[in-house]
């Protein structure tokens, strides 16, 4: 038994609080998407804190929609990416929360460098800026995103700072303020 699921100073005992709800979820989801699930990591046995499902990229939006609409994990807590330096290079990570039980599930998908991800904006409008941030920081393009610009860095910035090969001190200096684009208001 992994010690991190039974710490009383945090979130309580995971399995006590949520019972076997997440196991039912995992069974149901793996029945629905048999061939498209790469791996399922379970708290208690694997080194994760919440159930983690790694799915294949083509069905990610269907998978998220199913988790959201059919199983009630309808709150997008967080969306981010991880540079794994492997092949495929990136993980895009969604953290979903169930609004009634407040149980969480993590859904990951692998993306290669230069590959495009489908956008999750139809499901959560809040994913808009999260995707822009992932684009800015990792250079992952999102297909169907209405406004895929840089969000934290200057629009003229080169490279993607959170990639592992970007130097920590890779300064880029611009002598004029960031240009204003009136197209955005038309």
């Amino acid at each position: 038994m992994d010690v991190r699921t039974s710490i009383k100073t945090n979130w309580g005992n995971f399995s006590d609080k949520y019972g076997t709800a997440w196991e039912q979820l995992l069974t149901a989801l793996s029945n629905d998407f048999t061939s498209s699930i790469e791996q399922i990591l379970k708290p208690g046995t694997d080194a994760v804190d919440i159930p983690t499902i790694i799915v294949k990229k083509p069905i990610i939006i269907d998978f998220l929609r199913s988790t959201k609409d059919r199983y009630g994990y309808s709150f997008l807590s967080d969306m981010t990416a991880v540079d794994e330096e492997g092949d495929p290079r990136f993980f895009v990570v969604y953290h979903l929360m169930h609004l009634e039980t407040k149980a969480r599930v993590r859904i990951k998908t692998r993306v290669a460098d230069g590959e495009k991800m489908p956008t999750a904006i139809p499901l959560w409008e809040g994913a808009n800026w999260a995707e822009r941030e992932i684009y800015d920081m990792f250079g992952i393009h999102f297909e169907g995103h209405p406004d895929l610009r840089r969000i934290l860095m200057d629009q003229r910035w080169e490279g993607h700072p959170l990639r592992k090969d970007y130097p920590l001190r890779g300064y880029q200096i611009f002598l004029s303020p960031e240009p204003i684009d009136p197209e955005l208001l038309s």
């Binding site: 991190r4 945090n10 979130w11 080194a47 994760v48 804190d49 919440i50 983690t52 807590s77 967080d78 981010t80 990570v93 953290h95 969480r104 993590r106």
Partner: peptide, 18 residues
């Protein structure tokens, strides 16, 4: 090795460290 998402109710809302 492992991964964890820890969230706490900060003053403005859910503050999470993944």
């Amino acid at each position: 090795a492992g991964e964890a998402y820890t969230a706490f109710e900060a003053a403005n809302g859910e503050l999470g460290f993944y």
